[in-house]
Each structure stands twice: as C-alpha cells, then as structure tokens.
C-alpha cells in the first residue's frame, strides 16, 4: 500500500464524514434494509414529534389523516379511512420500518395507494404536475412531498403511538 493510496482513502473518509455531519441523505442515496426499512436517520437530527403532528394533519404537508384515523388526535376533524388506523402503529412497526413506510410505502405494500413521500425524480411519475395547479411540473422546483426532516418528525411521532 503506497502513501498515495492511503491519502486518497483518507480523503474519501473525510468526504463521507463531512457528508454525514452536514447534508441529509438524498432520496437516491437512501440505504434500505430488507427492502422495506431505513435504519439510518435521513438527517442525523432527531425528529420532533410535535412537528410530526403538524405534518400529519396539515393539508399542505403530509395530510396523512386524509387516509388514516388517529384516535390520539380526537380534535382533528375529517379523518379518512382509506388506510389502516394509526392506533398502535408504533407497536406494530420499528422506527426503521416506519421510516421506510413513510419514505416509500410501496416497498412494504406493493401497489399501495399510499403516496411516496421521499422521491424527487419526476421521471418516476406519469404526467407529474406542478403541485395542485393541474399544470406540468417545473424541473427547477419539483421536490419530494416531504423533506427529510419532516419525515424524521413524522416517524418520531408515529413511534409514540403504541396504544391500540
């Protein structure tokens, strides 16, 4: 092993460290376990359950309650029932599995109607639009439905739902 190789290896290691400390994991770089779970945090910053509640209920964010009921939020009106209830979801699934489901539920549930919240590649969609304008997407602004941190926040909240 010559010194040139060692310094190259060190440089690579430093780049990797730098990346994990500052930048979040992009959708294409997510590392899956058993094809359904994401063990590593997408941001390295612990999720905030209170923020997760906002993402869950806000129409402009996750709007998860459009399809899921959650009896831990009795004050939130118009909870849908297209998907299973969130009650006990934190007991049924591990944190890594919940991260996987929220990022891309179609890995766990093939063909699911649940949207993929962490994919920013317009080529994966048929006629992707510019949000809810009915117009074609803008390559400059097309993004994931939720940010990496919003996914961490939602997962942090879901893990608290251990009661049936």
């Amino acid at each position: 092993m010559n010194s040139r190789f060692i310094s190259a290896a060190l440089a690579t290691a430093m780049v990797v460290m730098g990346a994990s400390a500052s930048a979040e994991i992009k959708p294409a770089d997510v590392v899956w376990e058993d094809e359904i779970a994401i063990p590593a945090s997408l941001t390295g910053v612990p999720g905030d359950p209170a923020e997760g509640m906002k993402v869950l209920t806000s129409r402009s964010l996750g709007n998860c309650v459009a399809c899921h009921e959650n009896s831990a939020m009795p004050d939130v009106p118009f909870q849908g029932n297209v998907g299973p209830t969130f009650d006990g979801v934190g007991a049924r699934w591990s944190e890594a599995e919940l991260r996987g489901i929220v990022a891309n539920a179609k890995n766990t549930f093939p063909g699911s109607v649940m949207p993929v919240f962490y994919n920013d590649d317009p080529a994966d969609y048929i006629r992707p639009g510019n949000a809810y304008t009915a117009k074609a997407y803008d390559p400059e602004t097309f993004s994931t439905l939720l940010t990496a941190q919003q996914i961490e926040d939602v997962v942090a909240y879901l893990t608290t739902l251990t009661e049936y």
Partner: peptide
C-alpha cells in the same frame, strides 16, 4: 387505470378500490 401524478393515483384507486371510504372530508 393509469396512476397519474406525483401521488400516483388512478380513477380506480379512489372510485373502484375505495368507494364508500372517506378521504379527508
């Protein structure tokens, strides 16, 4: 049966597979 858009939903996703269900209000 085509699943359009970033939400990847077809007419059938809502009106064949899930009629009778509530989606938000």
């Amino acid at each position: 049966y085509t699943r359009y858009g970033q939400l990847e939903l077809s007419c059938a996703s809502c009106h064949e597979e899930n009629y009778g269900m509530n989606i938000r209000a």
